[in-house]
Each structure stands twice: as structure tokens, then as C-alpha cells.
Design a protein around this nucleic acid. Structure first.
Lengths: 178, 178
DNA sequence: CATCGTTATGTACGCTTGTACACATGGGAT
DNA sequence: ATCCCATGTGTACAAGCGTACATAACGATG
């Protein structure tokens, strides 16, 4: 048989699951679809992830961590001075500008977390991470409000099809910063 | 046979679908679950709603209209003077305070629209309706930002389990109002 | 080399799903 | 009275699902 004793089998399944969610949505993720995408037999996914929730948690956690690292690597939010609202608006623009797979995946996580308690810590973790990052440049209370407004703006863009308006976002974010 | 030629059959199915979504989530809605809840045979739901999307749109549209009417009847946002931020924060508090079925259903609709284009007009309609209502007390641009911040705050409450803090909401909403 | 536990694989079972379709029924038009 | 057609009903089918499980293959350990 091909590819037996694959030391990175589990990781490859997670990567495949992320691709599946990105393409077909969370509802399209199953043991079978992940297995097909990863090119492994069905039994392999059920072995590494006893329940489907387990696979979902692993995939979504890795996806959101990946995003967090991308933002961190970008570094736009790390500077201690300057215009925080403008920086955040620019990061949002870049996030929403290119491939939206990551964005949609993030909010799909939100949606799923509403009904699946197992995912709630993952969603909360992501929001807390961004809030903590913002708290370096403002107070924690304001940071949380910025996260909330950010979420709302992204949802509006994703749902209405209206293109992202960086100037508008910057102004509204600036209003929240005291 | 019982209850043949039921003139409100279609309506009863929609009501049942809303109850199903409230209890089991959007993922739990199927022709069969709605039929069982409405106490009608399977063929009846497939007759009145050719596709499942059709049933979902009908149910969620009615649910969001119901919410809009409830807010309108409350009248807290209609006054021309006073503290808009406080009023909005209070309405949110009442919405989030009691039975959260309606809230969860609303945001389930919101987030599900990300992947189901059929639902997007319904979600956009709901947001536009709230924005229009707020625009009576402030400018349209600010109104949209208030909707965004509102959405973000609600999501944070729903996803993190942190109790709703009306004072915090009022202050952050007030910052957005110029 | 023998043994053991981990990892891998294929298959099977029971269940739910969307959808199609043939048939029944009765109200309204003629 | 008769016919038509919208409405109602039951059943069947193929597909997809999660999960369980018996078996096989390997690495490590003795």
C-alpha cells in the first residue's frame, strides 16, 4: 500500500480539512470529504480524530492561529506610536482585499461556535488574541470595542457585497478610540 | 385523513421551521424535521417548498420581520431626542436578557448567509432596517457604524459567554456618535 | 528473533437526508 | 353533474453520513 506509516498523516488531514472548509463550508466537512481531500482512506481520519468535532476544532484552531501569525508577521499593529485606527483599517483592507478564504473561514468558525460549545473557546481565543494585540496601543476596554466594531464591519462587507471602504473604517474606528 | 385541506398549511410549516431552528439550529432544519414539528407528512413540506433553501428563506424572513416589529413596537428608538446610545444599549439589554432563542436565530441567519447566497438578501434587509431606524436619530453613516458595533457586541456576548454589560455598550456606542 | 503496541486500512451497519413520483381527494369552474 | 387541477399523502430510492470493528503492517523493545 502506498504511503504507509506517514509521520505527518495527522497534520495532512488537518490541512485537508481546512481546504475543504474553505471550499465547501463547514457543512461540507465530513470524515469522508477530509479523507478524500487528504488522499487517505476513511479509516485514517476516524483513527486520528475520534469524533468530527475533534477534527473541526483542530482545523479551525490551526486556521485561526495561522491568521494571527500572519497579522503578527505583518507588524502593522505592533508599532507603539502612530495612528492605530489607520493601521487597523489598513490591515482589514489587506485581509479583505485578496483571497477571502481566510476571512470566510474565520466567520464560519463564529457561526459554528454559536451552536457547538466545543468551538466556543477557539472563537473566543481568536477575539482575545486580537484584543490583546490592540491593547498594546490602547486600553483593554477600548481594544475590545475595536474588535467588536471590526467584526461588524467585516460582516457588513461580506454580507452586503459592498466593497470595503478603508476611509470609512478608519474614521469609525478612530471614533471609538478615546 | 385528519386535517385535509388546511388553508394555513404553509404558514404552519413556516412556524414549525422557526421552532426547529430555534431548538436545533439551522443545521437541524430539514424537510423531515419541519414536517414532524408541524405534524404534517413529509410530502406536504416538499410540496409547499420545493427546495430546502426556499423553506429556510421563508422561515428566516418571517423570523427577522418578527424581530423588527418587536423592536418597533418597543418604541425606544423612535424618540427624536434623548440619549441614543443609552436607548440602543437598553434595547440590546432586553433583547439579550431574556430568552435568547431569537437572538441566536438572528445571528445564525446572519452568519449562515456567508455561505448561502439565498439568505444574503434577508440578512442585508435586516441590517438595513435597523440602520434606517437609527438614521432617524443620527446620520446614515453613523447609523451603519452603530449597526456594525452592535453586531460585534452581540457576537462577543453570544460567543464568549461573558454577560452583557449595558454600561460598557452604552459608552462604546456613544463614542461612535459624533 | 519474538512480542507488543501504535498506526493504517477496508468494510459494514444503521441512520438521515433530499428528491421524485404515483396516487388520493375535494373545491371550483363549466 | 362532471371535469380539471391545485393540494395532500405515502412510499421508495440513492446518496451521504458517523461510527465501529476486524484485520494488517510496521517500529520499537526485549
Amino acid at each position: 500500500m502506498a504511503r504507509r506509516y506517514d509521520p505527518e498523516r495527522r497534520q495532512r488531514i488537518i490541512d485537508a480539512a481546512i481546504r475543504v472548509v474553505g471550499e465547501k463550508g463547514l457543512a461540507g466537512l465530513s470524515h469522508r470529504s477530509a479523507a478524500a481531500e487528504a488522499d487517505v482512506p476513511l479509516g485514517s481520519t476516524t483513527y486520528h480524530f475520534k469524533s468530527l468535532d475533534e477534527l473541526m476544532v483542530a482545523a479551525l484552531r490551526q486556521a485561526s492561529e495561522g491568521f494571527a501569525k500572519a497579522v503578527a508577521a505583518h507588524g502593522a499593529l505592533d508599532g507603539s506610536g502612530g495612528d492605530l485606527a489607520a493601521d487597523l483599517a489598513r490591515v482589514l483592507g489587506e485581509w479583505l482585499g485578496g483571497d477571502r478564504t481566510g476571512v470566510e473561514l474565520e466567520y464560519e468558525l463564529y457561526l459554528a461556535a454559536l451552536r457547538r460549545p466545543a468551538l466556543r473557546p477557539v472563537a473566543a481565543e481568536w477575539a482575545d488574541d486580537l484584543a490583546a494585540r490592540l491593547a498594546h496601543r490602547t486600553d483593554p476596554v477600548t481594544a475590545r470595542a475595536l474588535v467588536a466594531l471590526t467584526d461588524g464591519i467585516c460582516l457588513q462587507v461580506l454580507l452586503t457585497g459592498v466593497p470595503y471602504d478603508e476611509g470609512y473604517a478608519r474614521e469609525m474606528l478612530a471614533r471609538v478610540i478615546p
